[in-house]
Write a protein that binds this DNA or RNA. Structure first.
Length: 217
DNA sequence: GATAGCGGAGGATCCTATTT
DNA sequence: AAATAGGATCCTCCGCTATC
C-alpha cells in the first residue's frame, strides 16, 4: 500500500472515537500493551506488515499520544540502533541510513487518549514528506542533529565513566534507551566491546511534532 | 516438511530525577 | 509546582533455528 492510499482510507475515521471503529475485545489490555493502538490503526488500514522495514511501500506510519488539542504528550519512537551502531559511529551518510529511510515520508497520526479507550479520538494526520521543499528546513535540521548525535555517542563511549552510550539529543531527534528484559546489549565491532548494556533507539522529540502540527490537515 | 520456541525488531508509553 | 530530560519497561509479531 502506498501512503497516499492510506490517507484516503484514514479520512473517514478522523475525529472518530475508537469505540466506533473497533470491538471491545480489540481494546482489551490496550493500556498495558502500549503499542496496541498503533497496531489497531494498521489493521484498520489493512496493512499487511509484510513490507520489510517500512509500513507502506513508500513511507511509514506513526501514531502518538496527544491531548485533545493535538499537543504531543510523548516523544515518538523511530527505530532501534543496536544492529547499526557502527554505522553511526562511522557517521554514515545521513541519506543512506535506516533512520532517513524511516522518516523520509511519514504519516503522523496523533491520537487523543483522554478518558476511557473507547473515547480516544483519531485526530487529523500530518503527511511529512522530507523531500518536499516545504520541509527542507526541518530535513536539514534533522541531518544536522544526526551527525551531532553520532559525535555525542562517540564521546560517551570514550569519556563516560561506564564507557557506555547515554541519551544524546539534537534539536528534533535524539537517541535514548529502548529495551525490555532480558536486555539486548549493544556490541560495537569498532570498539570491540559492548557500548551499552541495553538497546537504544532514535526518537523524535516533542518539538518535531509541535513543528509539523502547525500545518495539520 | 511441519511446529515450537526463542531472540530481536517493531508497536509504543511510563516513571523518576532534574531543571525551570 | 510543572515541565522536561533521561532512563526503564510493556506487549506483539515475525523470522530463524531446533526439534518433531
Amino acid at each position: 500500500m502506498r501512503l497516499e492510499e492510506a490517507k484516503i482510507k484514514l479520512q473517514p475515521m478522523l475525529n472518530c472515537r475508537l469505540g466506533e471503529l473497533v470491538t471491545p475485545e480489540q481494546m482489551t489490555d490496550i493500556i498495558r500493551a502500549k503499542g496496541r493502538t498503533g497496531q489497531i490503526i494498521e489493521s484498520l488500514l489493512g496493512l499487511d506488515s509484510t513490507n520489510g522495514n517500512l509500513d507502506f511501500v513508500d513511507g511509514e506510519l506513526k501514531t502518538n499520544k496527544c491531548d485533545s488539542s493535538g499537543n504531543p504528550l510523548e516523544t515518538m519512537f523511530i527505530t532501534q540502533i543496536s544492529s547499526r551502531i557502527d554505522e553511526l559511529l562511522e557517521k554514515k551518510d545521513f541519506y543512506e541510513t535506516l533512520l532517513y529511510e524511516k522518516i523520509r515520508n511519514l504519516l503522523y497520526v496523533p491520537i487523543c487518549k483522554e478518558g476511557d479507550p473507547e473515547d480516544w479520538i483519531i485526530l487529523p494526520f500530518v503527511h511529512v514528506d522530507l523531500r518536499k521543499s516545504e520541509y527542507t528546513n526541518i530535513r536539514l535540521q534533522i541531518e544536522k542533529d544526526y551527525y551531532y548525535i553520532c559525535e555525542l555517542l562517540k564521546k560517551h563511549i570514550e569519556t563516560s565513566t561506564d564507557g557506555f552510550i547515554h541519551t544524546s539529543s539534537g534539536e528534533l531527534i535524539q537517541i535514548r534507551s529502548k529495551d525490555s528484559k532480558p536486555y539486548t546489549p549493544i556490541y560495537s565491532k569498532l570498539y570491540k566491546r559492548n557500548v551499552s548494556n541495553k538497546n537504544h533507539a532514535f526518537y523524535f522529540k516533542k518539538d518535531f511534532m509541535r513543528y509539523i502540527n502547525s500545518d495539520r490537515y
